Simulated scan of single mutants.
Amino acid sequence: MTGASMLAGCGISGPADVTGQRRVVGTDLVGARGATAADQRKIDRTVVGLCAGGVWTKDECQRHGERQ
């Protein structure tokens, strides 16, 4: 019975608050399609937040800045 009651408390739930994540990622990307220079600026601002927040590695951040 003890084992079953311990397992009952285990589970996966969503974060209680995403304020910190929202500050890192921002909302610039919402609605951006990459079709215009303004869209690209929105994408770039989002990447800056991801890089500054340590979500992406330094190499990943540098790759974003490379011209294809």
Rank of each mutant, 00 (worst) to 15 (best):
8 A>W: 06
8 A>V: 11
8 A>G: 14
9 G>C: 15
10 C>S: 11
10 C>E: 12
11 G>D: 01
12 I>V: 12
12 I>Q: 07
12 I>T: 14
12 I>Y: 09
13 S>L: 08
14 G>I: 05
14 G>Y: 11
14 G>P: 14
15 P>A: 09
16 A>W: 15
16 A>T: 14
16 A>I: 15
16 A>N: 15
18 V>E: 09
19 T>A: 15
19 T>K: 13
19 T>V: 13
19 T>D: 14
20 G>P: 12
21 Q>C: 14
21 Q>K: 13
21 Q>H: 13
22 R>W: 08
23 R>C: 09
23 R>F: 07
23 R>Q: 12
24 V>P: 03
24 V>T: 07
24 V>E: 01
25 V>P: 03
25 V>H: 09
28 D>L: 05
28 D>V: 02
29 L>E: 03
29 L>T: 02
30 V>F: 01
30 V>H: 06
30 V>D: 03
30 V>W: 05
30 V>C: 06
30 V>Y: 06
32 A>G: 11
32 A>D: 15
33 R>Q: 08
33 R>V: 07
34 G>D: 07
34 G>Q: 05
35 A>Q: 07
35 A>W: 05
35 A>D: 04
35 A>F: 10
35 A>Y: 01
36 T>L: 11
36 T>V: 13
36 T>M: 15
37 A>Q: 07
37 A>M: 06
37 A>F: 09
38 A>I: 14
39 D>K: 05
39 D>H: 03
40 Q>S: 06
40 Q>F: 02
40 Q>Y: 05
41 R>N: 14
41 R>K: 12
42 K>A: 07
43 I>N: 02
44 D>L: 03
44 D>G: 02
44 D>Y: 06
44 D>N: 03
44 D>F: 02
46 T>A: 01
46 T>Q: 01
47 V>A: 00
47 V>M: 00
47 V>C: 02
47 V>N: 03
48 V>D: 01
48 V>F: 03
48 V>G: 00
48 V>S: 04
48 V>H: 01
51 C>Q: 12
51 C>M: 11
51 C>D: 11
52 A>Y: 08
52 A>E: 13
52 A>Q: 12
52 A>S: 15
53 G>H: 01
54 G>A: 07
54 G>F: 06
55 V>S: 06
55 V>D: 09
55 V>T: 15
56 W>S: 00
56 W>G: 03
56 W>D: 01
57 T>I: 00
58 K>P: 08
